[in-house]
Structures are given as C-alpha cells and as structure tokens.
Design a binder for these strands. Structure first.
Lengths: 213, 213
DNA sequence: CGCCGAAATCTACGGTGTAGACCTACGGCG
DNA sequence: CGCCGTAGGTCTACACCGTAGATTTCGGCG
C-alpha cells in the first residue's frame, strides 16, 4: 500500500488518539506506517505542517447543525457538535491553540457559525462581539481552568477528606469542594452540563442585547 | 553570586519573556546563568518542575482587587488585573494550560475570586457555575480562537484586499473582516474592549440569575 | 588540619526534527 | 528497445533536547 498524505494523516490522528499527542513524533509515525521517517517529508512540509494538517482533519469532522429557524438552537447544536468532536480527540484543543492561523476547515466552521449568527438577525457589530465572547467555545473547548471533577469520582471518602484539608488554606474553595463531592448539596460536577450552562448564559446574554438594540 | 532557586526562576521568566517559551531549555537557561545545565537540577526537580515554578511566580504577580462592596466591580477588577499580568508574559497562558494541577498561587487567586463571588451573595451552586463559565478568563486568558486584529493594523489597503478575497470563499467572515478593518462600520478590533465586553456579559448574566433566585 | 555534605560539573545515553546525498522504480519519448 | 527525468523512498549525519550517574569542588565545623 503506497504512502500517501491521506494515509499519513489518518495514522497520525490514530496515533495521537491512542498514545497521546506527545507520542506523535516523525520517527514513531514512520514506524507506525512501516516506513522510513524521512519518507513522510515527501507528503508533508515538516512536523508543524503535519500538525496543521491533522487539526484540519479533526475540525473537518464537526457536523453542521440541521437547518433551523431559531438561531440560538442552531448555534447551540453546532457548538455542541464541535464539543463532541473535541471529546473524541482530547489532544486536539491543545494543538489547535498552538496554531498561528486557522485551518481551512476551521474557517469553514467559523463561516457556518457566523452565518447562523447573522441569519438570526444580529447586527454586524454584535455578531463580532459574539464571536469574541464565544471564543474557543465555538470549537467546543471547555476552557476550564482546572478539572474540578477531581477527587476521584467514586472515592467519596477520600474526596471529602481532600475537601476538608483544602478548607484549611482555602475555605471558599473548601466549601465548594465539599459541596461538589456530593457530601453537601450539588451532586458531582458534570462537565457537559457546565459547558451547556456557560453556553446558554452567553447565548441568552447575546439575545438580550439583540432585542435591546 | 551563588545559584539559587529564586535566581533560576527569575532568569527563566526573563528568558521566556525575551526569547519565547520555546527557547527555554535547560541548556539555554544554564548558559544564561553562566552555569552548567545540570546544576539547575539541584534546585528544581526537572523541567516540568521548572515550568510549574515559573507559572507560580507569574500568577503570584496578579494584584488583588481593592476591597469594594460591589462584587461585580471587585471581580471585574481582579480579572482585569490577571489579564494585565498575562499580557506581560504572553507565554504564560499556554504553559498554565499545560499544567495538570493548579499551582499554590493559582489556588490563592481562585480563593480570592471565590471569596468575592460568595461575598457578593451568590449561592454556592451558582458560584460553582460561575467559576466554570468564567473558565480560564479568571486568569486573564482571552481565549480568542484566532487573532482577528489580523490584516496588519496600519496597512488598510492590504487589509481591505484580504477582506475582499476572503469574501469569495467565506462571505460572512468577509463582511466581518471588511467592517473590522475600518472600511465599513466598527473601527478596528480592540482586544481589551472585547475582553471586557465578554466579561461584562458573563457577569451581568450571573447577576441576573442571582436576583432571579 | 581532616572530614562531611551539599552543590556544581562532566560524561554519556537515548530521544527529537530534519538537511542533504543517495538510490530506485517508473512513465514518456526518440 | 534504450534512455532519461523525475518523484518518492532511504540512509547518514548533525544539532539540539532532557537527564541519569559518577565525579569533582568547596565551605563550614569538629
């Protein structure tokens, strides 16, 4: 089977999915394909070019939303689709952020997003703000500062212990941790609902600004 | 002058500021300090430990907000202070995102943020949501998907050209680019006002949820 | 002085991306 | 058929990286 750009990209994505992005080296990739590492350079400018390319592949996997008269629903669906894609390739967010310029499929995605926003009747300046405030969320990044579904899900005992010890130096975070780890009120911390909560808060804010204008 | 952890960290931050984070290697850093690279390992576990440490230094530079009765103003000020710090160290955001756990000064910062939020009267569950929706914004990351102050600020001619060529494949982005590059309506694209816009939209949304509850 | 422990250094190993020379196979053409 | 240009695969080699492990240096103290 002849080496080809497509085969290289497919293998690269597979390797990153399986072993993590830090394991994606030209040598490992060549090995994966049973080929000399230098052969890859006939199909890809350099490693940066390879990363550009697999980002393009992954972003290209995002499904467009169904046509829908309601701009908020369409946008919501598009962004949740993006998030689903990024969850399938956990390394992708980091790599995308490290690219200087958006890839073609990223441009296509942004165009679709912008089309939904403008089609919904938001004026150009508000649409511009919307793109900024949504930020990397339009590509499905949850952009959480740190993972507070920590404390190991099932070990409620240890989690509560950690929350209590946290409370010594950081009382406010301690009470939060205690509550999140089920001991107190809000049960657990579902990333999906948090993502949706933030997204809806932003979309609602935008709509309010639209009707105000 | 004896080598010390403090001197190492200071030099590392300086080097990253000056030459970019990708130039920060143990060898380069040793050279910067006129010392054998291996000497650094007497004060730092390994390179990851070094990165952990300089993140902690940078986040520690964030100034707390003045005491203020208005939680929204205090939080706004804290977050804008964080942003100022991050703008001084453009590499920091990327490095912070690559850490698995928050550093001590990050914890302190989060504690202050949480204290402001809770002090403002937001119930615990809403405070939890708030931390998530603010995400990395609490550390001042603008998390823009790509830099749309592109097109080279001063070269309005070329920028308009680029906008027009963009309009071929991506009409919605094209009209946006045209407007942003001053030719149309909204003049330019100020990252600071965009950051503040998004922040205020989120803060206002949170306040509305608070009063609704 | 001698000794000890910590800090600094030296050497070396296995990894990285990739430049440049080399080889090889194949399609087109006289 | 023979030839040759070219595209793609391979080989070798270089400069860099992080760091393990052995070794040397040096300041303070008995």
């Amino acid at each position: 089977m002849a080496l080809s750009r497509e085969r290289i990209l497919e293998a690269a994505v597979r390797l990153a999915d399986r072993d993590g992005i830090e394991s994606l080296s030209m040598r490992r990739l060549g090995q994966e394909l049973g080929v000399d590492p230098m052969s890859l350079y006939n199909h890809v400018r350099d490693k940066e070019g390879l990363l550009d390319a697999i980002v393009d592949v992954v972003v290209g996997e995002i499904e467009p939303a169904e046509v829908d008269t309601d701009w908020k629903s369409s946008l919501r669906e598009t962004i949740l689709n993006a998030r689903r894609t990024m969850l399938r390739h956990p390394w992708a967010a980091r790599v995308i952020e490290s690219r200087a310029d958006p890839s073609p499929s990223t441009m296509r995605h942004m165009e679709r997003v912008m089309d939904i926003i403008r089609g919904g009747g938001l004026p150009l300046d508000l649409a511009h703000h919307a793109l900024h405030v949504l930020g990397s969320r339009v590509l499905g990044f949850s952009q959480d500062l740190f993972d507070d579904s920590d404390g190991v899900p099932r070990d409620a005992e240890a989690a509560a212990m950690l929350a209590r010890q946290l409370a010594g130096s950081y009382p406010r975070l301690g009470e939060l941790a205690a509550a999140v780890t089920h001991e107190g009120g809000l049960g657990g911390c579902d990333d999906d609902v948090e993502f949706a909560f933030g997204l809806d808060l932003i979309l609602d804010g935008l709509e309010r600004l639209r009707t105000a204008a």
